[in-house]
Every structure is written in C-alpha cells, then in structure tokens.
C-alpha cells in the first residue's frame, strides 16, 4: 500500500472538489496514508491528446517519471487522469522511438516500472470490497444505484480496468455495502462531457439518454468515478422530471463508513443528493449551513 503516490488531478481542486474530499476522507478512514505526489502537473486530459498524440503522452508521462524516481506508482481517483497516465505508461512500455522521445523531452529517466492505478480498482482489488464492508457501519440498505463507469475506465482494452459493456467493480463494491446496483445497459455509454461547452445540444441528448435509462432501471441515483461525467450529468439534466442526483462512489462508501456529509462534500452537488440520503436514513444529524443556503 505504500507503493503509491496520490495524484489528484486538476479537477479535484475545482469542479470535483467533493471527489477529492471524499477520496481523502475514505482513504484516511481505511487507514491508508498515501502521500501526494510533490510538484505534480496536469495530465493533459482531454485537450492535449486531442491536439497531438505525443503532446498528450508527454504531459502525463512527466508525472509517471516523478513517481518512478521515488520508486512508486500513481494512484488517481480521476478517470480521465487514469486514462491519460495509463496511455503514457502503455506508450513507455511499448518502447521504441516514442519512449525514447518521451525521455528526451522530459529530460528524465522513465521505464514504466509502475502501472498507474485508478482509485476504484485500488479499493476493490487491493483493499477489497469485503474488507471495506467489514469496516462499514451504515449499510446502504434500500438505496438503488445505477453505477456509471463512462468511457475512460472501461476502454480501450489495453488499459481498461473492467469489461467494456458490463463492468462490475463499482456494482460489486456498493452491493457489498448494502446498496442494490440495478442492472442497466448504459454503464459505459459516453456522456460527451468533453463537448459540453462546444456542442451543448448534443450533449444534453446524451445525458438525457443515460439518466432516463437509469430511471427506467429503477435507480434512485447515479454513481460515477469520473469528474467529467459527474459534472456533466449533474449540470445537464433537462428540466421537467425530478432529476437524479449524481454521486461519486467514494461519497457513498464514505456514508457507509459513517463519515459526515460535509466531510464527503455531499452538500456540493448542483442536484442535491442529501435529501435522498436523509430520506433513506443513511445520513442523519442537523442540516448543514451550505445545505440550508442552497436548498
């Protein structure tokens, strides 16, 4: 467990602030102290690799090289960072001219000794769902969740952490904690977050599809492991029907571990999630200041 350094990624200081908060709170609660990578920089997602393949690799690779110098791999909650770090790692491992060029432009040695890990995989595979459930005090009984993995964790095959069409890691974890993960078909359909600003109308359509499917499957909420997906689904549900809250999976794990809503940033969603959790008696205690102000 000491073999990782924490790579939060840029969103976790901003739009995905609650993801960062809940991740650190959960890790601390589980007794995993993972120091943050010193001097980390942006992985380039999603613009760098859209403009140039090598540019994309180079930005991510810098962080791999920093960690490798300390004999560690990177652990990241962000699906987009994971995808870019893994792409760079894969590029280095393939060797050849690209790997050579990366070392040259970075001016650092880089062998790709340590594979980057996504937080979801780390919690399920290395800590183990069962172990987390053992430490959890609040079963997520009665909560019906639609686990949404998006594109970045399930594709491409070279660095996917789970099946491309029907991934199970998050479903298994939350079921172990007492929630009911509904079977549904849109787990890995792209939500188009990357074009949210430039092609807003199309993206609204994509979001609607996904949210509708989750609703049809009987879910109370969606759960993600990706800041882009969360922000997109949280901000772009069409008005009309009552919206579905979008949680980070770490927030629900945190609830189950008995952590306070403010610690998990549960009061930071655009679509409030706390009313649902209160209704299911998963969260108790007085309504917080921000929660009250934003209601």
């Amino acid at each position: 467990m000491n073999s990782y350094l924490y790579y939060p990624g840029c969103s976790l200081a901003g739009t995905a602030r609650e993801y960062g908060q809940s991740t650190l709170a959960v890790l601390r609660r589980l007794g995993c102290e993972i120091p943050e990578l010193d001097d980390w920089t942006c992985c380039g997602a999603s613009s760098a690799h859209s403009l140039d393949h090598r540019l994309g690799l180079a930005l991510a690779a810098r962080n791999l090289a920093l960690a490798e110098a300390q004999g560690r791999g990177l652990l990241t909650p962000c699906a987009a960072c994971y995808s870019r770090l893994a792409a760079a790692w894969h590029g280095v491992r393939q060797g050849g001219e690209v790997a050579e060029w990366l070392r040259e432009i970075l001016g650092r040695p880089l062998e790709g000794t340590f594979r980057p890990r996504s937080l979801l995989e780390f919690l399920v595979v290395e800590i183990g769902s069962h172990e987390i459930a053992r430490q959890a005090g609040v079963p997520l009984d009665g909560l019906k969740v639609a686990c949404y993995y998006g594109c970045l964790l399930s594709r491409p095959a070279e660095w996917a952490i789970d099946d491309a069409d029907n991934p199970q890691l998050m479903d298994g974890l939350l079921e172990e904690l007492g929630a009911r993960a509904v079977p549904w078909a849109y787990k890995t359909e792209c939500c188009g977050s990357f074009l949210a600003l430039a092609r807003t109308a199309v993206v609204f359509g994509l979001v609607e599809r996904i949210v509708e499917a989750a609703r049809e499957a009987g879910a109370d909420c969606l759960v993600t492991a990706c800041p882009m997906c969360q922000a997109n689904l949280d901000m772009r549900q069409r008005r009309g029907r009552p919206p579905l809250p979008i949680f980070y999976f770490t927030q629900l794990v945190g609830v189950s571990l008995g952590l306070a809503p403010e610690v998990l940033g549960l009061d930071r969603h655009i679509i409030p999630g706390l009313p649902l959790l209160r209704e299911r008696n998963l969260v108790s205690g007085p309504v917080g200041l921000r929660e009250r102000l934003l209601r």
């Binding site: 099946d163 491309a164 069409d165 029907n166 079977p183 078909a185």
Partner: peptide
C-alpha cells in the same frame, strides 16, 4: 458480445 445483451 456484451453489446448485444444476449445474457442481459
């Protein structure tokens, strides 16, 4: 073919 939902 997971995408064809034969099992689902």
């Amino acid at each position: 073919y997971g995408e064809y939902a034969y099992r689902a």
